[in-house]
Design a binder for these strands. Structure first.
Lengths: 163, 163
DNA sequence: GGTGAAACTCATGTGCA
DNA sequence: TGCACATGAGTTTCACC
Protein backbone atom coordinates (compact mmCIF):
# COMPACT_ATOMS: atom_id res chain seq x y z
CA UNK A 1 0.00 0.00 0.00
CA UNK A 2 1.29 3.43 -0.94
CA UNK A 3 0.15 6.95 -0.31
CA UNK A 4 -2.28 6.91 -3.26
CA UNK A 5 -4.00 3.83 -1.85
CA UNK A 6 -4.23 5.62 1.45
CA UNK A 7 -5.90 8.57 -0.23
CA UNK A 8 -8.36 6.24 -1.93
CA UNK A 9 -9.24 4.66 1.40
CA UNK A 10 -9.71 8.05 3.00
CA UNK A 11 -12.16 9.05 0.27
CA UNK A 12 -14.13 5.80 0.20
CA UNK A 13 -14.36 5.61 3.98
CA UNK A 14 -16.13 8.95 3.84
CA UNK A 15 -18.32 8.32 0.81
CA UNK A 16 -18.55 5.03 -1.02
CA UNK A 17 -20.86 6.45 -3.69
CA UNK A 18 -18.02 8.43 -5.27
CA UNK A 19 -17.53 7.44 -8.89
CA UNK A 20 -14.17 5.90 -9.71
CA UNK A 21 -13.53 8.80 -12.05
CA UNK A 22 -14.11 11.27 -9.19
CA UNK A 23 -11.76 9.42 -6.90
CA UNK A 24 -9.24 9.33 -9.73
CA UNK A 25 -9.51 13.06 -10.31
CA UNK A 26 -9.03 13.88 -6.65
CA UNK A 27 -5.90 11.80 -6.26
CA UNK A 28 -4.51 12.88 -9.62
CA UNK A 29 -4.79 9.66 -11.60
CA UNK A 30 -6.92 8.49 -14.51
CA UNK A 31 -9.79 6.11 -13.97
CA UNK A 32 -8.34 2.75 -14.99
CA UNK A 33 -5.34 2.67 -12.64
CA UNK A 34 -7.51 4.06 -9.89
CA UNK A 35 -10.11 1.39 -10.55
CA UNK A 36 -7.40 -1.31 -10.47
CA UNK A 37 -6.16 -0.03 -7.12
CA UNK A 38 -9.65 -0.13 -5.65
CA UNK A 39 -10.11 -3.69 -6.96
CA UNK A 40 -6.87 -4.74 -5.33
CA UNK A 41 -7.76 -3.11 -2.02
CA UNK A 42 -10.98 -5.13 -2.10
CA UNK A 43 -9.26 -8.39 -3.08
CA UNK A 44 -6.66 -7.90 -0.38
CA UNK A 45 -9.42 -7.44 2.17
CA UNK A 46 -8.36 -3.94 3.17
CA UNK A 47 -11.80 -2.80 2.05
CA UNK A 48 -14.09 -5.33 3.67
CA UNK A 49 -17.44 -4.15 2.37
CA UNK A 50 -19.53 -1.21 1.30
CA UNK A 51 -22.59 -0.62 3.39
CA UNK A 52 -25.41 1.82 4.01
CA UNK A 53 -25.23 3.41 7.44
CA UNK A 54 -28.64 4.12 8.95
CA UNK A 55 -29.73 6.67 11.51
CA UNK A 56 -30.48 4.63 14.66
CA UNK A 57 -33.13 7.07 15.86
CA UNK A 58 -35.01 6.75 12.55
CA UNK A 59 -35.31 2.99 12.94
CA UNK A 60 -36.49 3.23 16.54
CA UNK A 61 -33.17 2.44 18.21
CA UNK A 62 -32.65 5.34 20.53
CA UNK A 63 -31.06 3.43 23.39
CA UNK A 64 -27.50 2.11 23.54
CA UNK A 65 -26.44 -0.12 26.40
CA UNK A 66 -22.96 -1.32 27.28
CA UNK A 67 -23.09 -4.71 28.94
CA UNK A 68 -20.07 -5.80 30.97
CA UNK A 69 -19.93 -9.55 31.51
CA UNK A 70 -17.95 -11.45 34.13
CA UNK A 71 -17.77 -15.22 34.05
CA UNK A 72 -16.57 -18.14 36.13
CA UNK A 73 -16.20 -20.41 33.14
CA UNK A 74 -12.93 -19.35 31.59
CA UNK A 75 -13.08 -22.17 29.07
CA UNK A 76 -12.91 -22.07 25.29
CA UNK A 77 -16.17 -23.98 25.27
CA UNK A 78 -18.03 -21.30 27.20
CA UNK A 79 -16.61 -18.55 24.99
CA UNK A 80 -17.70 -20.47 21.90
CA UNK A 81 -21.18 -20.77 23.33
CA UNK A 82 -21.33 -17.07 24.21
CA UNK A 83 -20.13 -16.10 20.71
CA UNK A 84 -22.81 -18.26 19.17
CA UNK A 85 -25.53 -16.72 21.31
CA UNK A 86 -24.30 -13.18 20.70
CA UNK A 87 -24.18 -13.67 16.94
CA UNK A 88 -27.83 -14.74 17.09
CA UNK A 89 -28.86 -11.43 18.63
CA UNK A 90 -28.93 -8.61 16.06
CA UNK A 91 -29.30 -6.15 18.95
CA UNK A 92 -25.65 -6.82 19.83
CA UNK A 93 -23.68 -4.72 17.38
CA UNK A 94 -20.27 -5.02 19.05
CA UNK A 95 -18.69 -7.70 21.20
CA UNK A 96 -15.19 -7.67 22.71
CA UNK A 97 -13.11 -9.95 24.87
CA UNK A 98 -11.48 -7.69 27.41
CA UNK A 99 -8.40 -7.71 29.55
CA UNK A 100 -8.68 -6.79 33.21
CA UNK A 101 -11.66 -6.62 35.47
CA UNK A 102 -14.42 -7.27 32.94
CA UNK A 103 -14.27 -10.42 30.79
CA UNK A 104 -16.51 -9.39 27.89
CA UNK A 105 -18.13 -6.19 26.74
CA UNK A 106 -21.21 -5.86 24.52
CA UNK A 107 -22.74 -2.86 22.85
CA UNK A 108 -26.46 -3.38 22.48
CA UNK A 109 -28.97 -1.18 20.62
CA UNK A 110 -32.67 -1.24 21.48
CA UNK A 111 -35.63 1.16 21.38
CA UNK A 112 -36.19 1.49 25.11
CA UNK A 113 -35.31 0.38 28.61
CA UNK A 114 -38.21 -2.05 28.45
CA UNK A 115 -36.86 -3.55 25.23
CA UNK A 116 -33.45 -3.86 26.84
CA UNK A 117 -34.97 -5.74 29.73
CA UNK A 118 -36.65 -8.15 27.32
CA UNK A 119 -33.36 -8.61 25.48
CA UNK A 120 -31.57 -9.24 28.77
CA UNK A 121 -34.03 -11.94 29.76
CA UNK A 122 -33.67 -13.69 26.41
CA UNK A 123 -29.89 -13.50 26.72
CA UNK A 124 -29.59 -15.04 30.17
CA UNK A 125 -32.15 -17.68 29.22
CA UNK A 126 -29.69 -18.96 26.63
CA UNK A 127 -26.43 -18.94 28.57
CA UNK A 128 -25.35 -18.93 32.20
CA UNK A 129 -23.47 -15.74 33.08
CA UNK A 130 -22.02 -15.07 36.52
CA UNK A 131 -22.26 -11.31 36.55
CA UNK A 132 -23.83 -8.82 34.17
CA UNK A 133 -23.58 -5.08 34.59
CA UNK A 134 -25.49 -2.76 32.24
CA UNK A 135 -24.59 0.88 31.62
CA UNK A 136 -26.94 3.06 29.64
CA UNK A 137 -25.75 5.67 27.18
CA UNK A 138 -27.72 8.92 27.38
CA UNK A 139 -26.36 10.33 24.16
CA UNK A 140 -24.20 9.20 21.26
CA UNK A 141 -21.92 12.17 20.75
CA UNK A 142 -19.65 10.62 18.13
CA UNK A 143 -19.97 7.50 16.04
CA UNK A 144 -17.95 6.91 12.93
CA UNK A 145 -16.92 3.97 10.80
CA UNK A 146 -13.91 5.94 9.53
CA UNK A 147 -10.68 4.54 10.88
CA UNK A 148 -7.70 6.85 11.39
CA UNK A 149 -5.29 6.16 8.53
CA UNK A 150 -2.39 7.97 10.13
CA UNK A 151 -0.85 4.72 11.31
CA UNK A 152 -0.91 2.88 7.96
CA UNK A 153 2.41 1.31 7.07
CA UNK A 154 3.41 2.38 3.57
CA UNK A 155 5.53 0.14 1.33
CA UNK A 156 8.88 1.31 0.05
CA UNK A 157 8.24 4.91 1.03
CA UNK A 158 10.20 7.45 2.96
CA UNK A 159 7.55 8.31 5.52
CA UNK A 160 7.40 6.14 8.59
CA UNK A 161 4.04 5.40 10.22
CA UNK A 162 3.08 7.29 13.37
CA UNK A 163 4.25 5.09 16.28
CA UNK B 1 -41.97 3.50 6.14
CA UNK B 2 -43.54 0.20 5.16
CA UNK B 3 -42.34 -3.37 5.02
CA UNK B 4 -40.82 -2.92 1.54
CA UNK B 5 -38.72 -0.01 2.78
CA UNK B 6 -37.63 -2.20 5.64
CA UNK B 7 -36.54 -4.90 3.21
CA UNK B 8 -34.60 -2.33 1.19
CA UNK B 9 -32.80 -1.16 4.33
CA UNK B 10 -31.99 -4.73 5.30
CA UNK B 11 -30.39 -5.35 1.90
CA UNK B 12 -28.45 -2.09 1.69
CA UNK B 13 -27.19 -2.38 5.25
CA UNK B 14 -25.58 -5.64 4.22
CA UNK B 15 -24.29 -4.59 0.82
CA UNK B 16 -24.54 -1.10 -0.58
CA UNK B 17 -23.08 -2.14 -3.94
CA UNK B 18 -26.27 -3.96 -4.92
CA UNK B 19 -27.73 -2.55 -8.12
CA UNK B 20 -31.13 -0.95 -7.76
CA UNK B 21 -32.48 -3.55 -10.18
CA UNK B 22 -31.19 -6.35 -7.92
CA UNK B 23 -32.78 -4.82 -4.85
CA UNK B 24 -35.98 -4.39 -6.83
CA UNK B 25 -35.96 -8.03 -7.93
CA UNK B 26 -35.43 -9.31 -4.41
CA UNK B 27 -38.27 -7.33 -2.92
CA UNK B 28 -40.56 -8.00 -5.86
CA UNK B 29 -40.76 -4.58 -7.43
CA UNK B 30 -39.52 -3.01 -10.64
CA UNK B 31 -36.56 -0.70 -10.64
CA UNK B 32 -38.19 2.74 -10.79
CA UNK B 33 -40.37 2.53 -7.67
CA UNK B 34 -37.53 0.84 -5.85
CA UNK B 35 -35.20 3.62 -6.92
CA UNK B 36 -37.72 6.23 -5.73
CA UNK B 37 -38.01 4.51 -2.35
CA UNK B 38 -34.24 4.50 -1.90
CA UNK B 39 -34.07 8.19 -2.83
CA UNK B 40 -36.72 8.97 -0.25
CA UNK B 41 -34.99 6.96 2.45
CA UNK B 42 -31.87 9.01 1.75
CA UNK B 43 -33.70 12.35 1.70
CA UNK B 44 -35.49 11.49 4.93
CA UNK B 45 -32.15 10.72 6.55
CA UNK B 46 -32.97 7.12 7.34
CA UNK B 47 -29.99 6.17 5.19
CA UNK B 48 -27.30 8.50 6.45
CA UNK B 49 -24.46 7.58 4.13
CA UNK B 50 -22.81 4.81 2.17
CA UNK B 51 -19.31 4.01 3.25
CA UNK B 52 -16.47 1.56 2.72
CA UNK B 53 -15.73 -0.44 5.85
CA UNK B 54 -12.04 -1.26 6.27
CA UNK B 55 -10.33 -4.12 8.08
CA UNK B 56 -8.74 -2.47 11.15
CA UNK B 57 -5.89 -4.99 11.25
CA UNK B 58 -4.98 -4.21 7.63
CA UNK B 59 -4.54 -0.52 8.40
CA UNK B 60 -2.43 -1.19 11.48
CA UNK B 61 -5.15 -0.70 14.09
CA UNK B 62 -5.03 -3.90 16.09
CA UNK B 63 -5.78 -2.41 19.49
CA UNK B 64 -9.16 -1.20 20.77
CA UNK B 65 -9.36 0.63 24.07
CA UNK B 66 -12.46 1.64 26.02
CA UNK B 67 -11.83 4.79 27.99
CA UNK B 68 -14.15 5.55 30.88
CA UNK B 69 -14.10 9.20 31.93
CA UNK B 70 -15.26 10.72 35.20
CA UNK B 71 -15.38 14.46 35.68
CA UNK B 72 -15.94 17.06 38.39
CA UNK B 73 -17.06 19.69 35.92
CA UNK B 74 -20.64 18.76 35.17
CA UNK B 75 -21.13 21.89 33.09
CA UNK B 76 -22.33 22.28 29.53
CA UNK B 77 -19.16 24.23 28.86
CA UNK B 78 -16.89 21.37 29.86
CA UNK B 79 -18.92 18.91 27.77
CA UNK B 80 -18.68 21.22 24.78
CA UNK B 81 -14.92 21.40 25.22
CA UNK B 82 -14.62 17.62 25.55
CA UNK B 83 -16.72 17.08 22.41
CA UNK B 84 -14.53 19.48 20.50
CA UNK B 85 -11.36 17.74 21.60
CA UNK B 86 -12.75 14.27 20.91
CA UNK B 87 -13.89 15.24 17.41
CA UNK B 88 -10.33 16.35 16.71
CA UNK B 89 -8.96 12.88 17.46
CA UNK B 90 -9.64 10.43 14.63
CA UNK B 91 -8.54 7.63 16.97
CA UNK B 92 -11.80 8.10 18.89
CA UNK B 93 -14.40 6.29 16.82
CA UNK B 94 -17.22 6.31 19.39
CA UNK B 95 -18.11 8.67 22.19
CA UNK B 96 -21.08 8.39 24.58
CA UNK B 97 -22.44 10.32 27.50
CA UNK B 98 -23.37 7.72 30.08
CA UNK B 99 -25.76 7.44 32.96
CA UNK B 100 -24.52 6.06 36.26
CA UNK B 101 -21.02 5.68 37.58
CA UNK B 102 -19.04 6.67 34.51
CA UNK B 103 -19.72 10.05 32.89
CA UNK B 104 -18.37 9.44 29.38
CA UNK B 105 -17.17 6.45 27.43
CA UNK B 106 -14.83 6.48 24.44
CA UNK B 107 -13.84 3.73 22.04
CA UNK B 108 -10.36 4.37 20.75
CA UNK B 109 -8.48 2.49 18.01
CA UNK B 110 -4.69 2.51 17.83
CA UNK B 111 -1.91 0.20 16.60
CA UNK B 112 -0.35 -0.59 19.97
CA UNK B 113 -0.24 0.04 23.68
CA UNK B 114 2.54 2.54 23.06
CA UNK B 115 0.40 4.40 20.56
CA UNK B 116 -2.44 4.43 23.06
CA UNK B 117 -0.15 5.95 25.65
CA UNK B 118 0.84 8.67 23.20
CA UNK B 119 -2.83 9.31 22.41
CA UNK B 120 -3.64 9.47 26.12
CA UNK B 121 -0.95 12.08 26.74
CA UNK B 122 -2.19 14.22 23.86
CA UNK B 123 -5.75 13.92 25.17
CA UNK B 124 -5.07 15.01 28.76
CA UNK B 125 -2.83 17.78 27.47
CA UNK B 126 -5.87 19.34 25.85
CA UNK B 127 -8.48 19.01 28.59
CA UNK B 128 -8.53 18.52 32.33
CA UNK B 129 -10.16 15.19 33.27
CA UNK B 130 -10.65 14.08 36.85
CA UNK B 131 -10.44 10.35 36.33
CA UNK B 132 -9.62 8.22 33.31
CA UNK B 133 -9.80 4.45 33.31
CA UNK B 134 -8.65 2.48 30.23
CA UNK B 135 -9.75 -1.07 29.43
CA UNK B 136 -8.06 -2.93 26.61
CA UNK B 137 -9.93 -5.23 24.26
CA UNK B 138 -8.04 -8.43 23.51
CA UNK B 139 -10.24 -9.45 20.64
CA UNK B 140 -13.08 -8.01 18.58
CA UNK B 141 -15.49 -10.92 18.34
CA UNK B 142 -18.35 -9.10 16.65
CA UNK B 143 -18.54 -5.74 14.97
CA UNK B 144 -21.31 -4.77 12.64
CA UNK B 145 -22.83 -1.60 11.26
CA UNK B 146 -26.11 -3.43 10.63
CA UNK B 147 -28.82 -2.28 12.98
CA UNK B 148 -31.61 -4.66 13.99
CA UNK B 149 -34.69 -3.64 12.02
CA UNK B 150 -37.09 -5.70 14.10
CA UNK B 151 -38.18 -2.64 16.06
CA UNK B 152 -38.98 -0.39 13.10
CA UNK B 153 -42.38 1.25 13.37
CA UNK B 154 -44.33 0.62 10.19
CA UNK B 155 -46.91 3.11 8.92
CA UNK B 156 -50.54 2.09 8.50
CA UNK B 157 -49.73 -1.61 8.69
CA UNK B 158 -51.16 -4.41 10.73
CA UNK B 159 -47.92 -5.60 12.30
CA UNK B 160 -46.91 -3.84 15.50
CA UNK B 161 -43.22 -3.27 16.23
CA UNK B 162 -41.46 -5.52 18.74
CA UNK B 163 -41.78 -3.76 22.11
C1' DG C 1 -48.79 3.94 -5.86
C1' DG C 2 -47.01 1.17 -10.12
C1' DT C 3 -44.72 -0.26 -15.31
C1' DG C 4 -41.48 -0.13 -19.36
C1' DA C 5 -38.33 2.05 -22.29
C1' DA C 6 -35.12 5.88 -23.52
C1' DA C 7 -31.08 8.70 -22.30
C1' DC C 8 -27.28 9.22 -20.07
C1' DT C 9 -23.51 8.08 -16.76
C1' DC C 10 -20.44 4.75 -15.04
C1' DA C 11 -17.73 0.61 -14.41
C1' DT C 12 -14.97 -2.42 -16.63
C1' DG C 13 -11.81 -4.38 -20.33
C1' DT C 14 -8.50 -3.94 -24.20
C1' DG C 15 -4.58 -2.05 -26.50
C1' DC C 16 -0.64 0.61 -26.11
C1' DA C 17 3.28 4.11 -24.07
C1' DT D 1 2.55 1.36 -13.82
C1' DG D 2 0.21 4.58 -16.30
C1' DC D 3 -3.37 6.71 -20.11
C1' DA D 4 -7.18 6.77 -23.80
C1' DC D 5 -10.83 4.92 -25.75
C1' DA D 6 -14.73 1.29 -26.49
C1' DT D 7 -18.84 -1.19 -24.66
C1' DG D 8 -21.95 -3.12 -21.86
C1' DA D 9 -24.21 -2.53 -17.45
C1' DG D 10 -26.51 0.42 -14.15
C1' DT D 11 -28.79 4.73 -12.96
C1' DT D 12 -31.93 8.16 -13.71
C1' DT D 13 -35.69 10.36 -16.13
C1' DC D 14 -39.65 10.17 -19.00
C1' DA D 15 -44.46 9.22 -20.53
C1' DC D 16 -48.09 6.52 -19.22
C1' DC D 17 -51.24 3.15 -16.26
Amino acid sequence: MDSLDKKILRLLQGDATLAVSDVAKRIGLSTTPCWRRIQKLEEDGVIRRRVAVLDPARVNLGVTVFVAIRTNSHSIEWLRRLSEVVHDFPEVVEFYRMSGDVDYLLRVVVPSIAAYDAFYKRLIARIDIRDVSSSFAMEQIKYTTELPLDYVILDRSGSLPAI
